[in-house]
Design a protein around this nucleic acid. Sequence first.
DNA 1: CGAATAGTGTCTCTCAGACAATATTGC
DNA 2: GCAATATTGTCTGAGAGACACTATTCG
Lengths: 246, 246
Amino acid sequence: MRPVPADEREWLASYDPRQFPPFAVTVDMVLLTVRDGVFSVLLVERDTYPYRGALSLPGGFVQPDEDLDAAAVRRLERETGVRRDVAHVEQLGAFGAPDRDPRMRVVSVAYLIFAPDLEAPQPGENTRSVGWKAVEEVVAATLAFDHAQVLAAGVERARAKLEYTPLAAAFVSEHFTVAELRGVYEAVWGRPLDPRNFHRKVTGTPGFLVPVGRPAPVGPEGGRPAALYRRGEAAWLRPAMLRPGS
Amino acid sequence: MRPVPADEREWLASYDPRQFPPFAVTVDMVLLTVRDGVFSVLLVERDTYPYRGALSLPGGFVQPDEDLDAAAVRRLERETGVRRDVAHVEQLGAFGAPDRDPRMRVVSVAYLIFAPDLEAPQPGENTRSVGWKAVEEVVAATLAFDHAQVLAAGVERARAKLEYTPLAAAFVSEHFTVAELRGVYEAVWGRPLDPRNFHRKVTGTPGFLVPVGRPAPVGPEGGRPAALYRRGEAAWLRPAMLRPGS
DNA sequence: CGAATAGTGTCTCTCAGACAATATTGC
DNA sequence: GCAATATTGTCTGAGAGACACTATTCG
């Protein structure tokens, strides 16, 4: 901590924090994964007012002494069972329209999380049920608060991040094949990629993939066994993986 | 607005908002420009506690019924005289470490603003002076709160955005030459670019530049007059302008 | 062997980077 | 003409997309 000058210490002692308009601050999570080739988001069914019965992103109020990132990770682990070290967590942004919550003035800090496919998470407090929904099938009008807008921002950010970062690897297990990684790109971008060019591209990009020696077991369709990789150290893909089309 | 069910309306009437931990919410602005070839940020000298006398990013408290974006734009126009329509404004993110403000728990929503070079802005309330500082010369330790971290995030985002968006044009006047645009890239990225390749690249990227017919006046060093352009309609540069080196 | 999947090689086109050459101005 | 800046052209190498071909497994 910085040294606090004596005059400031004196001023602080007489300071009344109530002179500032009070807000509540929440964290909401856009938790994304790829399940059986389908780009999916975790949604909960609300069991309390407001928006009782509606679907919403998981989240909740930030505690008085809690860091924003810590609040997001705490709820991630507690409400969904996803451990932070197997997922990628980043802040998506703040959403704070004055009427976004009918109870009071709330600013929500949204977090974007990429997780590998996990067993079904358990419902937390104040929720009836929790489950994965295909991103393409989420009907915006059925989401509580402004969560349709938050989800759209998260999905677009995820699609962009696959282009210039190695974060697609956050959607698969620690050891994975090139085909599994390609499945992530195809699910998130919603279009097929050429397996041969994809293979050449990802294995040729420095720092993206590290071979782990051992081959993968053969899949249900037979065929030559694939090599296994883990994620490399690169933080950025240079050059980027370009989305086909647009 | 959505229709509110009768049972929820009843519940809301008996709801006590004080059960949630109170936060203050502020907006802080990372206002960047390029002045005489120098990448610069607007800083104010604080005239009130805390951090009295220290430099900080301009900003202030969000009002109870004010949208976050509106709060940022209001302060931009009021405290710096920059009109929103000549600048690019986007949210940078939320900063909310529990001890970032000694007065109380504050979450700051930071905004990133790109503006053309403007006459010196006027100091607002609670500030002694206001002025542009070269980004390279800002000493992190002299900034109030966590503003060094906020500034670093804004600068890095700005450098990245020049790569894949046409936002460099937000740093120059409505009509500009290719050389002026190149000056923006060189100042923000801190390294020289080949004028000939740069010219070919920007004039060849669809939607980046629109010629406005009229030539620019000849500069102080003489030479062939440059053509004038205005910014085109493209939202993204495809393919991107790659930063040399790294 | 045939089917299926994994992985390599080849060709073409686009584009970035280096830099020569030309165009247009003021003096 | 000379200096200075703007703009176009040319060459080369990296890399993306299309797709033929080889490799390895199962049944």
